[in-house]
Structures are given as structure tokens and as C-alpha cells.
Design a protein around this nucleic acid. Structure first.
Lengths: 143, 143
DNA sequence: GATAGTTGATATTTATAAATATCATGTTTG
DNA sequence: CAAACATGATATTTATAAATATCAACTATC
């Protein structure tokens, strides 16, 4: 939402510096599907303030609550994206995000469905669920 | 449901033997709120076949999928017990299981609400959710 | 009433997730 | 066209969750 917050201005070294962590750690979080940094045409990553905030939250969850990365992925897989995006029954039937329960929806390729039209990096399912503490509240709002 | 499966016949040493794990591990799972073994008047634990199956599943989750115990607890906290048991709005407002998101509902004391009348050990919320892989299916059925 | 098995608690070991270091190769920028 | 920084990949280290061992006190069973 906030243009400034979502402006991808930090290089990976700047982001690592600001967060006090190493560069490979940032790449690992991305590989695990916890963050989707902006990528330039040349494939270089650029991080926004929103990304940094998200990563801070991820780290609090891993190091504070002791939920493992695998646990966080499973928790985020429960976000009812099909409700949020209003998927049809037919689309759900063939959607990995709807069917599986081990990874967040934005880690799938989304071919042949409603989400193939849009970019996960700006999708509300991704942006609003930076914090897996919010999963239950989100679920309640649809139950 | 099955009388045989839920018959608490195994001592803790027999259960540990059958599962190929140590006694302190069984006590740990209980302390973490993942299992509720039957307790005799003398406070001794007795395990049923259903308990053993549940523990096998817990171990597969911890050692197979790499979700930590803390992660499993968080996942199980998302089970919509208030829907399953049909809690009133007033009851939900003061229920820790409804409000919090870090432990399964059956780990709370349930004073002053609908659940204070019943025993978690036989409650369908506990018995049907031995496997946190079932959480998403359960959620879908209420969404 | 003696033996075997239980209790909870604390201390220790083991297994492994999380984080980092290092690499050869590629890209950006002054 | 160098110097600085990026890339992905693999190897290594570190931190800690998970499991176990051990304890003194208590309970069951024969």
C-alpha cells in the first residue's frame, strides 16, 4: 500500500547489514518461500522496507516462538487464499495451494488458474500475511 | 469410538517398548499437550492403542516433516473447536482456546464455559485431530 | 515387606535446523 | 576495464530442539 514501504531500494548486502544477519540467510528465507524480494532484470534482488519488516517478524517467530521454518510454512499454507481471492469450485479442484498443506500458496506456480493473472508479490494474501500470528485471525474472519 | 482402540491397557514402559522410544519422551509429549493419556486414581498413566497411533503420527511429523513440537502446537491451535462444539459468542469471548494461537484447545483448563462439562480425552476435537495434517481438511469443512 | 515399576524433576547427550563461510562465476558501476 | 558486489551452490559451523539418562521419592504387586 504505502509506496515508500514497498519501494525495493536495498541491495542484499544493505538488507543484511540493516537486519544484522548474513546474506546466505536472506537467500535461504527466500528459497523456503517466506519472502519474495523484488528482482531486477539482471536477477539481482532488491529489498523494500516492507520486506525488512517481514524478515524481522520471521526471525522473531523462528528464534522467539521456536516454530521451525517448516512449521511456519505449514501454518501459512492454511491461509484460505481461495476465499480471499474468491476462487471458483473448479479452480480449487486443480489448485495446489487449495489441496496441499505444506507450503504457502505463493510458492506455487499458479498456472491455469485465477492467480496466473496476478503477481504474488503484490497479492494481499502474501502482503497481509507477513506474520503467521495473524493466520488465526484471518481464519476466524472467514469461519 | 472403538472400545478396544481406546482401552487404556498399556503401562508407560509397555508403550515405550512398543513405540521404540524412551519413557521421558512419552512424558514430554504429554507435557507439551500433544497427548492426554488416561490416568488411574493413583496418577499412573495407561495408554490405549489409539494413544500409540497418535504418538506414531506425532513422531512422523516431528522427525519426518521437520515441524517442531512448538509448530505442531501452533497448528493444532487453529482447529476451530468453537465451531465444532458450537460455542456461543459470549463463551468465545472469554475462551483462551478461541483467543490464543499457541496451544491446542485441550491444554486449557476450560473453567466457566461449555467445555468445563466435558472431558477433553473423549472430545472429538482431541480425538479426531491426532494428525496435524488433518487440520486443513477440518478448516475447509467449516470455511 | 521386598521387587519391580511408577512419579516428576534435573542434567546430559544427540541430532539436526539455522546460520554462516567460502567458492567459482557473473553483473554492476565509476 | 577494474573494483565492488552480485549470483547459486556446497561445505562448515553454531545453536538448540528432541531425546535420553539419572535421580530420590512414591506406588503397585506378589
Amino acid at each position: 500500500m504505502n509506496r515508500d514501504n514497498n519501494n525495493p531500494v536495498y541491495t542484499i548486502s544493505a538488507a543484511a547489514e540493516l537486519l544484522g544477519i548474513s546474506i546466505p540467510t536472506l537467500r535461504m528465507y527466500e528459497k523456503e518461500g517466506l519472502i519474495i524480494p523484488f528482482k531486477k532484470e539482471s536477477n539481482q534482488r532488491r529489498y523494500s522496507q516492507a520486506d525488512l519488516d517481514r524478515i524481522k517478524c520471521i526471525r522473531e517467530t523462528i528464534n522467539g516462538t521456536k516454530i521451525s521454518i517448516e512449521g511456519i510454512k505449514h501454518l501459512l499454507s492454511l491461509v484460505p487464499c481461495w476465499k480471499i481471492k474468491n476462487c471458483s469450485t473448479d479452480e480449487r479442484a486443480v489448485c495446489e495451494a487449495f489441496i496441499s498443506h505444506d507450503k504457502p500458496c505463493w510458492t506455487y506456480s499458479h498456472k491455469n488458474n485465477l492467480c496466473s493473472e496476478i503477481s504474488c508479490i503484490t497479492c494481499e494474501v502474501y502482503t497481509k500475511l507477513s506474520d503467521c500470528k495473524k493466520v488465526k485471525e484471518t481464519l476466524k474472519s472467514y469461519l
